[in-house]
Amino acid sequence: MPVKLQGGSGEDHEDEARIEIVPLIDIMFFLLASFMMVSLTMTQVHRVNLKLPTMATSDKQQKAPPLHLAVDEHGVVTWDTKIVTPSEVTERLKALPPNEDTRVMIAADQNCLHHQVLSIMDAVRAAGIDKVSFETKNPR
């Protein structure tokens, strides 16, 4: 809608009110890039907080990520933050599509009991998975 302004000399000036769209597009691209960068920094694996034992000869694995099981110091077993029993571990692993490259990583708290870790290892092997490893941290 044009706005008519009367000048002091009696002339009519017509100025249109307009929205500048270029700065609006710049702001939208900036916000898009900012949200993308923030979302990339938020990709973390949420797991149970454990005190992992150290091992000097550990090596990093370069293949597809393994399935993660955790045993805390009280013997509670979790699979991706969901508490499970050893029999549920076997059932869930058997329900997965058969793949000979399926690997399981067991992260056990250094203060948990040995038989609790072995019961999880037996549950994994009962599902037919032989590639089992234990998660440790580097002493550095």
Rank of each mutant, 00 (worst) to 15 (best):
V89L: 09
F29E: 11
I27T: 13
P65C: 11
T90G: 09
C112M: 03
Q44C: 11
K51S: 15
T41G: 10
D72G: 01
D122H: 14
V84S: 05
D59K: 14
N49C: 12
L32E: 08
E91Y: 13
T57W: 08
P86W: 10
K82E: 12
A107Y: 07
T81C: 15
A126G: 12
F30N: 10
A33P: 15
K60T: 12
T57H: 07
I83G: 06
A127D: 08
T41Q: 08
V77S: 03
S87K: 15
T90A: 06
V104Y: 00
V84D: 04
L40N: 09
L69Y: 05
L96N: 07
L96E: 12
H115K: 09
V84N: 02
V71S: 05
L52C: 11
C112N: 05
L113R: 10
P65I: 07
D72S: 01
I83W: 12
K63V: 10
T54N: 03
K94Q: 12
L67C: 03
I120Y: 03
L40E: 05
K51C: 14
V45M: 09
M36S: 13
T57M: 06
N99R: 07
T43Y: 13
L113N: 06
E73G: 09
L113C: 05
T43H: 14
A64K: 09
E91I: 10
H115Y: 01
H74R: 14
S34T: 12
D72E: 06
T81L: 15
D80W: 04
A123G: 04
P98M: 11
S34A: 14
E73I: 03
M28R: 13
P65T: 09
D101T: 11
R47D: 10
M121G: 01
R103V: 00
K60Q: 13
Q116S: 01
M55T: 14
N49R: 11
K51N: 15
K94N: 08
Q44S: 12
S39A: 05
V38P: 07
G128K: 02
L67A: 02
R47E: 12
I83S: 07
S39F: 00
K51G: 13
K51I: 15
V48C: 13
S119Q: 04
C112V: 03
I27D: 14
M105D: 00
H46K: 10
T102M: 01
P86R: 14
A127I: 03
M105V: 00
E91F: 13
L67D: 01
V84C: 06
V76P: 15
L50E: 03
V89W: 08
V38I: 11
H68E: 00
H46G: 07
F30V: 09
M42F: 11
M42E: 05
R103M: 01
V71M: 02
P65H: 13
V117H: 04
L118S: 06
I27H: 12
V48L: 10
V84H: 04
H74D: 15
L118G: 06
C112K: 01
E88I: 03
W79C: 07
A123D: 02
V45A: 11
